[in-house]
Design a protein around this nucleic acid. Structure first.
Lengths: 241, 241
DNA sequence: TGCCCGCCGATTGTCAACAGAAAACGATCT
DNA sequence: AGATCGTTTTCTGTTGACAATCGGCGGGCA
């Protein structure tokens, strides 16, 4: 494999190191979670090309930690479906083709549709969804956080159903969804972030209202429309770069 | 925490040790995968009670490996949702309540129903499903392998759709499904294994036929019926032990 | 020239040991 | 007696080192 440091991993994120401050929430631990977060971010933002090999020792010395945390981080990334270990133990970044986008979108649609229907049927509290939308509104067009907030919004949709396992299934897809949203948002938003932001708001607001009104059919239809619009925009950009 | 070895983990499974033979399929490695498999088996079969604490050092010396593989194995199990690490790092076995059964079943129904519909719409090859059913038929009433084969059957249903991410979402639930099937099969099957076996066959055969005939509505209805029967039997046993 | 075999570097899997934090325990004080 | 504080013990997180394995490279041979 080629020498030199791996691009897009200058360990600048966070503070000056893993011992910075917060213990990365629920991940395995400080170093492990930090490395996993860094790697995940690099992958979902496309800085790590699909197929690129991740060598434990190189990552370790580049990030100035031992191989242990790196190893564990690769393990959680593998569990998230972002990397894949060949049967020789070599770890590579997984790639996503155009067909995968349709596939992922359809699965998301199915899961989130079911969640909304169940949530409304159970008269779930819509306020978390409203709060998640408000967070998007308040953020502005800052692309970086926007992705996280968009993902959090859709997570709140899934959580409407109050189903532990539905959430678990969706969570298994979350990193990949993050990848797709990030790449798509960058393509759509780097020219005109404000317009992209307005588009997102326009797509989400009616959905929030429909959910607050407990209008399940309308909410589901709006969700489907939102996904269709997104994928078609992707496809347009994809075919004519 | 109480002393002594953890019950139900006598490292008998497989050969005499991790260096036995095959490198546990696609898991992380020999020892890691072996430990993860052992632990997973113990959890899904109920030998490890929910809430039980898993101490790395104790597991390590009990299984005669170092803490490294044990640690990685616990990471894998955590990714599968079978254990949970508290914010102090302590790892405990997660528990499932009666409500979780309904929840899990409904999510499974949704996923597998969608898979069947998509698979039939795409004119997917039904032979893997038939093969999985044949494997169940050939096995007989041996409860142990029956669970694996039942799970493999349902996995083949999901694979009908040819959707990478639908499979990933379902796979995220697979260990938990395994747990439920195992516990349920034991309760239902320990009195009269033959009868339980016949019940499984009777529930699966029409489903296979409907899929082979590309009759999506009938297949979906049969799947729903199968799940309803199972859950109601569970509930009956649950309320009157 | 083309193919096969053995060597060598690179990389992973594993292990034992160290430092820090959290929990459990007991003693002391009120 | 009950609560509180300090000590001890347990357990995790991390590190560096060792052994085994895989891939690639060059030399030898037909």
């Amino acid at each position: 494999m080629s020498d030199g440091p791996i691009p897009g991993l200058e360990r600048r994120a966070g503070s000056g190191g893993p011992t910075g401050q917060h213990a990365t929430k629920l991940d395995r631990s400080m170093h492990t979670g930090w490395v996993a977060g860094l790697l995940r971010e690099a992958i979902v933002e496309g800085r790590l090309a699909p197929g690129a090999g991740l060598v434990e020792l190189r990552l370790a010395e580049q990030l100035e930690v031992s191989r242990g945390p790196v190893r564990n981080a690769l393990g959680v990334l593998e569990g998230e479906g972002l990397v894949r270990t060949l049967r020789n133990g070599r770890t590579v970044v997984v790639g996503f083709g155009p067909g995968d986008l349709d596939d992922l979108t359809s699965v998301r649609l199915e899961l989130e549709t079911g969640a909304i229907e169940r949530g409304i049927r159970l008269a779930a509290d819509p306020r978390p969804v409203q709060a998640a939308f408000a967070a998007i509104e308040d953020e502005g067009a800052s692309t970086r956080r926007l992705v996280d907030l968009d993902l959090a919004f859709h997570r709140s949709l899934v959580e409407l159903a109050g189903s532990r396992f539905l959430l678990q299934a969706w969570l298994a897809l979350a990193p990949v969804i993050h990848t797709v949203i990030t790449i798509g948002n960058r393509r759509l938003g780097e020219r005109d972030p404000e317009r992209n932001f307005a588009r997102i708001l326009a797509a989400h607001r009616p959905l929030v209202e429909a959910i607050a009104a407990a209008d399940a059919p309308r909410a589901v239809a709006l969700l489907a429309t939102q996904f269709e619009v997104t994928t078609s925009m992707f496809a347009a950009r994809e075919s004519a770069p």
